[in-house]
């Protein structure tokens, strides 16, 4: 995974153009290609192309963030901490977008934006955990301490969150498609038509997340270097 990120971290153009192409394809294809006709859900089934990739993106971003938190604790390199924080930031944006797209969909399909669905609640809890992560970082003054305690909480929260967002929704009944006896898209989609848009969308959004994070990481590195140079000059 580290190697994969090193590859993406370079300033090369190939994966950025791939990301743009995949996202353009998923927007055009998502609105124009045929979808199964179903009662209640109707055309809102297209939300799958935009809502579900947000969750895939969020979990992926948080996974990379935790990975770099572990790396920080092992090597104590400040750079790993910057990467970990910026991926957590990007994951939070994906999570917020996921909640908002989900609420818009729920408003048309379930009748209310907040339906108390276990998956919705689990997602809200995941966001609360990462908000707490940023509150913790904000309340520590010392750079080294902030990085170390932040990394510890990041890892702890990630492992404590897994049962919440993956296991609890499967244990309780839910109206969410794909759980509690409600069919997910693999049952509707007999000719695999939706997958042709869904999987490219997931990959495209994950690449976009890496792109945003890598820009922010480079920005942070430049800021650090400017501060260091100013400090050396004694400004």
């Amino acid at each position: 995974m580290g190697g994969l990120f090193q590859m993406l971290n370079s300033k090369s153009i190939w994966w950025k153009s791939l990301c743009a192409l995949l996202l353009m394809y998923s927007v055009v294809g998502g609105f124009l290609m045929r979808v199964p006709r179903l009662s209640i859900v109707n055309e809102t089934i297209r939300a799958l192309y935009y809502h579900v990739p947000m969750w895939f993106g969020m979990v992926f971003m948080f996974l990379i963030s935790t990975w770099y938190a572990v790396k920080y604790l092992r090597n104590h390199r400040m750079d790993d901490d910057i990467i970990s924080v910026e991926f957590a930031n990007t994951g939070l944006v994906f999570g917020l977008l996921g909640i908002v797209t989900g609420m818009i969909w729920a408003n048309y399909t379930w009748g209310t934006p907040w339906h108390g669905d276990p998956k919705q609640n689990g997602a809200a809890i995941a966001l609360l955990v990462y908000f707490a992560y940023f509150v913790l970082r904000g309340s520590l003054r010392n750079d080294e301490q902030r990085a170390r305690l932040g990394a510890v909480y990041n890892i702890f929260a990630f492992f404590a969150m897994i049962p919440l967002i993956f296991i609890i929704p499967r244990m309780t009944s839910s109206m969410h498609p794909g759980s509690g006896g409600n069919p997910g898209f693999n049952m509707y989609d007999l000719d695999n038509n939706m997958r042709k848009v869904f999987y490219p969308a997931v990959i495209g959004w994950i690449l976009l997340g890496c792109w945003i994070a890598s820009l922010r990481i480079r920005l942070r590195r430049i800021e650090e270097r400017i501060l260091d140079e100013a400090y050396e000059k004694g400004v």
Binding site: I125, V135, S139, Y153, F156, A157, A160
Partner: peptide, 26 residues
């Protein structure tokens, strides 16, 4: 573990509640 983290910061108990509640919901 959270109290060990919170003891290092200035806003001890508040921070513990903020960090602890979402994790304890499960």
């Amino acid at each position: 573990l959270l109290s060990a983290i919170a003891a290092r910061s200035e806003s001890g108990t508040l921070l513990m509640a903020v960090m602890g509640f979402p994790i304890l919901i499960g």
